[in-house]
Design a protein around this nucleic acid. Structure first.
Length: 112
DNA sequence: ACTCTGACTATTT
DNA sequence: CAAATAGCCAGAG
């Protein structure tokens, strides 16, 4: 189902994907963007996360960059809340990077 | 309508 | 391996 990259619900679509990230798993901005049919709009996904602050149902802490780096940790309250949230889910974070990211990585396509 | 910005990514130095 | 570069596109002023 190819989405039409209209500005319509771009954020909403991002949220829909992010909320589906299973407990103890993480995904990347690029993967989400690609799933939305706009692989070049990974930055928009990050931007959407920024707006997702109002959405408490959006686990933004489960979204990291392609290297498993917690690039958005500075956008969370506190200094290391993002990492703590991840670790509380069983994710091992070292040096702001998800250990075994390859294994913990979850792709929206995995649902199908 | 225009310009600036950014929670990215791939490629190159 | 770290830093710089370029492409990318939608939101905000």
């Amino acid at each position: 189902m190819q989405y039409n990259p209209n500005t319509l619900n771009f954020f909403e679509r991002v949220y829909e994907v992010v909320v589906q990230v299973p407990y103890g798993r993480v995904t990347s901005y690029g993967a989400i963007a690609k799933h939305l049919g706009a692989p070049k709009s990974s930055r928009m996904v990050g931007w959407a996360m920024n707006a997702a602050h109002s959405r408490m149902d959006v686990p933004a802490h489960r979204v990291v960059n392609r290297q498993g780096l917690l690039t958005g940790k500075h956008h969370f309250p506190g200094s290391n809340l993002m990492q703590q949230l991840l670790e509380s889910e069983g994710i091992v974070v070292k040096n702001d990077k998800v250990v075994d990211f390859k294994t913990k990585f979850w792709d929206p396509a995995d649902l199908y």
